[in-house]
Design a protein around this nucleic acid. Sequence first.
DNA 1: ACGTATTTGTACGTATGTATC
DNA 2: AGATACATACGTACAAATACG
Lengths: 135, 135
Amino acid sequence: MTVDPSDDRPLYKQLADLIRARINGNELPPGQRLPAEHDFAEEQGVSRDTVRQAIAILRNEGLIVTSKRGSHVKKRADLTAVHVAMGEIHARMPTEEERKKLGIHQGVPVLIVECEGRAEEIHPADRTFIKIDRG
Amino acid sequence: MTVDPSDDRPLYKQLADLIRARINGNELPPGQRLPAEHDFAEEQGVSRDTVRQAIAILRNEGLIVTSKRGSHVKKRADLTAVHVAMGEIHARMPTEEERKKLGIHQGVPVLIVECEGRAEEIHPADRTFIKIDRG
DNA sequence: ACGTATTTGTACGTATGTATC
DNA sequence: AGATACATACGTACAAATACG
């Protein structure tokens, strides 16, 4: 399947949809490497820039991670999850500094748990820390 | 303040830091419009592409929103917040389709609340729906 | 109501740097 | 050391939406 330049939807969004469908359909299973940007561009008849925009969308959705070795389909384990009994929870994308400091993966939001006024920033690895007993 | 090409940090990250500092220092208060990409590029002596990358970072962090009228500093009210008593909570960035369907702003993650096996996708406006009594 | 200016969006190109294999 | 692949940064051009006189 390839993108359609005559379609009114932007090429990079079309391409993102195509790749997302392959991932959700398990045609591209977790851990699988995506084709190189250059190869993707040739295969689809678009510029590398367009491919990069599509990749950026999926990275932003937390579907893939990108490194110098290429883009790979993410594993479910990367999902941010917390157990709470009560309180208020905020979610947002971390700054790069927070990502480094807390060891957060690309595309993974941070959760801010507020309990009795105090706010605490957490990340996936901290899961066990923020269990709040509701006794 | 301008970016420093001799610095080893990428220009677009430097620029993102500069703008973020202005926002956090309330020099650019909520609702304030940022300079146009073109003007920013000239002022900083970089390409528009570089400015757009910086802007994209801040948008991704949920600090600003961008429309055809320009980029504006976001208001705190856009933060995703939920009240829960128990359960498991996942957070991730929504697809564009979800953003449209649920009316989610740019840079705002969705929260998935799982309670007794059932998973439910929520967004800020649904706040009142997912209050789970912990009796 | 209409045309113009502004501003972001999309898409292409090139070149070079840097990390990894 | 060489090839591969992503990152950064520049350029251009046109489209599309919005704002303005």
